[in-house]
């Protein structure tokens, strides 16, 4: 197995608290890795360290065989890792389209001359991106494409979640990190969202790490699972293997 992402001894502390404890992770291309664990077990912290928002206290991260441990968030995004946030972080006053274009930053021309003077070229780039944004939104929820130019703050919570996933997807990253993308959705809506994500995943050949509390979702869409508890990996494997694991049942499923 050649790993797309591999972490060795990844550790992050907050004062005395060890939020990530010497974590070893290998993720191969094309995986959908489910990341599970009780509240406060370090799942979000793992994403934050991976994306450079928090520097690692120890250990290293490699992506496509290059060391990326000390990259800033901008650098992590540029090499093809995009994410969503557990608590929605859209720019609510901006339109859905604007938000998506924030996600597409690395593919847009930000030169002053291009933006202020070459308006025809800019217009063409805008039109291409409007089409791409419509197409992507349509995959998730067709009516959403019609609201492309409405403020993100004016659309329902569920749609905002979808927009956030699309914002992470639109730059066509290699690795997508989803932090509870279905928070606040009903069971049906969650399954729907996950199916849509899977569809895009297959089409683009994406690799995904998904944090999700609902076990039925994990069972249905992930190819591999990893369980965290107090910042430590306590189990990994397929869902079937992991759910049989006694430690997991005690720590997470709350079973005796």
């Amino acid at each position: 197995m050649t790993a797309l992402l591999s972490c060795r001894g990844l550790t992050r502390t907050f004062g005395g608290l060890v939020a990530l404890d010497a974590l070893d992770v290998e993720v191969a291309e094309g995986w959908v890795l489910g990341l599970i664990g009780p509240n406060g077990s370090g799942k979000t912290t793992f994403f934050n360290v991976l994306t450079g928002l928090f520097p690692a206290s120890a250990g290293q991260i490699r992506f496509e065989n290059a060391e990326i441990t000390d990259l800033k968030p901008q650098g992590v995004y540029r090499i093809g890792i995009a994410r969503t946030f557990q608590r929605s972080r859209l720019c609510l006053p901006l339109s859905v389209f604007d938000n998506l274009m924030v996600g597409n930053h690395r593919n847009l021309n930000h030169g002053l001359w291009f933006n202020l003077v070459r308006r025809q070229a800019l217009r063409r780039q805008v039109e291409e991106n409007v089409a791409a944004a419509r197409e992507l939104l349509t995959i998730f929820h067709a009516p959403l494409a019609a609201r492309l130019f409405e403020p993100a703050g004016g659309i329902p919570m569920i749609d905002r979640r979808r927009v956030e996933v699309c914002r992470a997807l639109i730059s066509r990253p290699k690795l997508l990190l989803l932090d509870e993308p279905s928070a606040g959705m009903t069971h049906e809506e969650t399954l729907q969202l996950m199916d849509d994500i899977l569809r895009v995943q297959r089409k683009l050949g994406l690799t995904i790490i998904l944090i999700e509390h609902e076990m039925s979702v994990i069972e249905r869409i992930t190819s591999h699972c990893m369980v965290l508890n107090y910042g430590r990996k306590i189990a990994e494997g397929t869902y079937a293997q992991v759910s049989r694991n006694l430690l997991v049942r005690q720590a997470y499923l709350g079973l005796e």
């Binding site: 994306t51 968030p73 946030f85 859209l90 901006l94 996600g103 914002r167």
Partner: peptide, 14 residues
């Protein structure tokens, strides 16, 4: 606008 509204999200997208 993104820089003004949410520096963390902005940085995450490069």
């Amino acid at each position: 606008d993104a820089v003004r509204l949410d520096e963390i999200a902005a940085a995450t997208f490069g």
